[in-house]
């Protein structure tokens, strides 16, 4: 059904075949190299506040990624120097633990309300104050823990708050 073009042969060509195999292997190797080298250069430990504190000395001044609950009262922003500081409270990383404690919203709330949770001060410099930064937001930060125990973040991600606002509104009344 498919018409062959003039000069096209269906015969097997050994000469052509090894070129394809070598070419394929070269590409495969190049892609593998790209992925491995990029991973090595950019991999960061993803830790909870507890884990970072307990492993502190080994990870001092190394790029890591941490996640925690923002404590709203501690948010400070100096617009002159674009310096943002706030405290985050430890939230568990284990999904089954989060589920058991009633979901992410509940876990974040509990972490902020309970004064016994491990806390860490975070400083971010050079960014506008993020719109999503507020009490009980989940912050995911990339940066380094300094000798003074302050986490200097170069990147700050905040999880969209509509995802975990109180499910049931306060204004609700019975009919």
């Amino acid at each position: 059904m498919e018409n062959a073009l003039p000069g096209q042969t269906k015969t097997f060509r050994t000469g052509g075949r090894w070129k394809f195999i070598v070419g394929g292997l070269v590409i495969l190797a190049a892609v593998a190299y790209l992925i491995i080298s990029s991973t090595q250069a950019n991999a960061q430990y993803f830790l909870t506040i507890d884990e970072l504190k307990s492993r502190g000395p080994a990870l001092l001044n190394k790029d890591v990624r941490i996640s925690g609950a923002v404590v709203g009262d501690t948010i400070q922003y100096d617009p002159k120097t674009l310096t943002l500081s706030f405290t985050v409270a430890n939230v568990p990383a284990d999904n089954s633990v989060i589920d058991k404690e009633g979901g992410l919203a509940a876990v974040l709330h509990a972490a902020v309300v309970n004064p016994k949770t491990t806390r860490m001060k975070v400083v971010v410099v050079g960014q506008p104050k993020p719109d999503l930064l507020r009490n009980e937001a989940q912050a995911i930060m990339t940066g380094q823990l300094g000798n003074d125990g302050v986490f200097r973040a170069s990147e700050l991600l905040l999880k969209c708050p509509t995802k975990y606002q109180d499910v049931v509104p306060n204004q609700v009344k019975a009919q």
């Binding site: 892609v31 990029s38 991973t39 990383a93 990339t142 990147e155």
Partner: peptide, 24 residues
């Protein structure tokens, strides 16, 4: 994957994607 094999959660950020996909 990293948690599965090493027990440690390790992430890669935007620089990983930029450097790995750029040549492609």
């Amino acid at each position: 994957l990293s948690e599965l094999f090493t027990g440690q959660k390790v992430t890669v950020g935007p620089p990983f994607y930029t450097s790995a996909t750029g040549p492609l």
